[in-house]
């Protein structure tokens, strides 16, 4: 138990109110489990996420950041998520230059997809943890 408590990766996620945030609520209602290091911020639409928020989270110590919205075509605000996709892709390119593109992820999760939400965030958590453990060994 103790080593579990050793600080695992910390992930800040931005979740759209109409889809991913709903999925995260449902994941809770269904008592699905995911690591405590994952914490979600509710935004009205994934397009509200300013790339500056992502950078702020990284600067303040987040190991990873995800932005999650509705599947393409299903945006509550018609096509906000296309703007999100474009912005996050550009930001990811920048992250790549510093070999840290694994620290930023974009997912599409509908309100019905509690399982997908948990799978996505858990996978991200595991990848970050592995990367870090590998780093520690070296």
């Amino acid at each position: 138990m103790e080593e579990n408590r050793d600080k695992g990766p910390e992930i800040v996620g931005f979740a759209c109110s109409y889809c991913t945030f709903k999925a995260s609520e449902m994941a809770g209602s269904l008592r699905m489990k995911y690591p405590e290091g994952i914490r979600v911020i509710q935004v009205p639409c994934s397009s509200r996420v300013d790339p500056a928020f992502v950078i702020k989270a990284i600067l303040e110590g987040a190991d990873g950041v995800f932005v999650a919205g509705c599947h393409p075509g299903d945006c509550h605000f018609i096509k906000g998520n296309f703007f999100t996709r474009r912005k996050i892709a550009a930001l990811k390119e920048m992250f790549k230059a510093f070999s840290m593109d694994g620290r930023l992820k974009l997912f599409w999760v509908s309100a019905a997809e509690a399982r997908r939400f948990v799978d996505k965030v858990t996978t991200m958590y595991k990848e970050l943890k592995e990367e870090r453990d590998a780093g520690k060994k070296n």
């Binding site: 138990m1 579990n4 408590r5 994941a27 809770g28 405590e36």
Partner: peptide
């Protein structure tokens, strides 16, 4: 939300409290 996003999704009291 400390129920759907905390107490229900994690089992470890220490980590959840934090």
């Amino acid at each position: 939300s400390i129920r759907e996003h905390c107490s229900w999704v994690g089992d470890d009291v220490e980590l959840n409290t934090e």
